[in-house]
């Protein structure tokens, strides 16, 4: 679908310079997938198909996809309660994600985890996490394993601005730095920890400033700019892979929706939301690809259509999937004896 890409020069965005048109189109497709997945989830929720709550990342797609561009399936991520985007970015199957959402046996967690615990171990996603800051030490542990076992894997640790005030954040960054571990801490600063703004919760202006306390590079970027995210995270991943230790990247972004389904949006204005919606990362990515001749205007609706179809199929799969058996409610608390050989 691409025409003739324009000549690369110093003004060409990093992403366009660094990735093939196919990779960039795939990245855009993933961003659409994330958005349609979450819109589909929201719709399913309203139809009563989903139990519990969910945390939507609509508006943050560039951060999720851009941060995973340099990762292979061997590399790991740890994610957050707002983790659908990370999961899709790392290559998850939408059908299994929706099935998990619907609490089905065919879901990623066989209906035991739900939205907040979706993981895709095969693709290196060690899981979303219901505890703010819960994934930070685990990411450091995964990096420790990679270093000790010499797997060459890098771990990208996603967390939100809320987590940067948890003790686990400081303990994890410190240890990662002390031991020079291959981990990239990606803070998705969407301005609010539930209702509390970073201005009210965080002593430093930018979370990335905290990197200085742990003697690692820290960089704040426009998290709605796919190329900017990619440029910063790719450099940090390269540094980690080279054995030079961890970095902290802060992607400044915004969630269009409330914190969760119970959010009545009393802490921010419609104007503020509208202002950020004008900075839609997907529209900006599409514009960038068109501007650089990778896509044409007419390609975008086609991608959207294709994505809508994928989402519809995934929802259908989830709906038709069987529920877990009640008798198996306590399965998987412990590793069964038969599986121990493999685990050991």
């Amino acid at each position: 679908m691409a025409g003739n890409p324009q000549m690369l020069d110093a003004n060409t965005p990093y992403a366009v310079r660094s990735y093939s048109p196919e990779a960039l189109i795939e990245a855009l497709r993933k961003m659409y997938l994330i958005r349609r997945f979450e819109e589909g989830a929201e719709d399913s929720y309203m139809r009563g198909l989903i139990h519990g709550t969910m945390h939507l990342s609509i508006g943050q797609e560039a951060s999720a996809v851009g941060s995973c561009m340099a990762l292979s399936d061997n590399d790991k991520i740890t994610s957050t309660h707002r983790g659908h985007g990370h999961c899709v970015a790392k290559g998850a199957d939408l059908g299994k994600m929706f099935a998990e959402f619907f609490g089905k046996e065919t879901g990623y967690c066989r209906g035991r985890g739900g939205s907040m615990h979706i993981a895709d171990v095969e693709k290196g996603n060690l899981g979303a996490n219901g505890i703010v800051g819960g994934g930070l030490p685990i990411a450091v542990g995964a990096a420790l394993s990679a270093k000790r076992l010499g797997t060459g894997a890098v771990t990208v640790c996603f967390f939100g601005d809320g987590a940067n005030n948890e003790g686990a954040f400081h303990e994890a960054l410190n240890m990662a730095a002390v031991w020079k571990l291959p981990v990239v801490f990606v803070c998705e600063n969407n301005k609010y920890g539930m209702s509390t703004s970073t201005e009210r919760s965080t002593a430093v202006k930018n979370v990335a400033e905290r990197a200085a306390a742990y003697a690692m590079p820290g960089e704040t970027v426009d998290g709605n700019d796919f190329s900017a995210v990619t440029e910063a995270v790719d450099a940090a991943v390269a540094r980690a892979r080279a054995g030079e230790g961890p970095s902290l990247i802060e992607n400044v972004t915004y969630r269009w929706r409330g914190h969760s389904k119970s959010d009545r949006n009393r802490y921010r204005t419609k104007e503020e939301i509208a202002e950020w919606q004008a900075k839609d990362p997907i529209a900006r990515m599409g514009r960038m690809l068109i501007d650089h001749g990778i896509l044409t205007e007419t390609d975008l609706p086609k991608i959207e259509e294709e994505v809508a179809e994928t989402v519809a199929e995934a929802i259908a799969f989830a709906k038709e999937s069987p529920d877990p058996k009640i008798a198996e409610a306590t399965r998987d608390v412990y590793t069964p004896a038969t599986a121990r050989g493999a685990a050991a």
Partner: peptide
């Protein structure tokens, strides 16, 4: 907290 979590993450990934 961090130490225990690192141990958990390491155990999860092969150590």
């Amino acid at each position: 907290l961090g130490g225990a979590g690192v141990a958990v993450g390491a155990a999860l990934t092969g150590l």
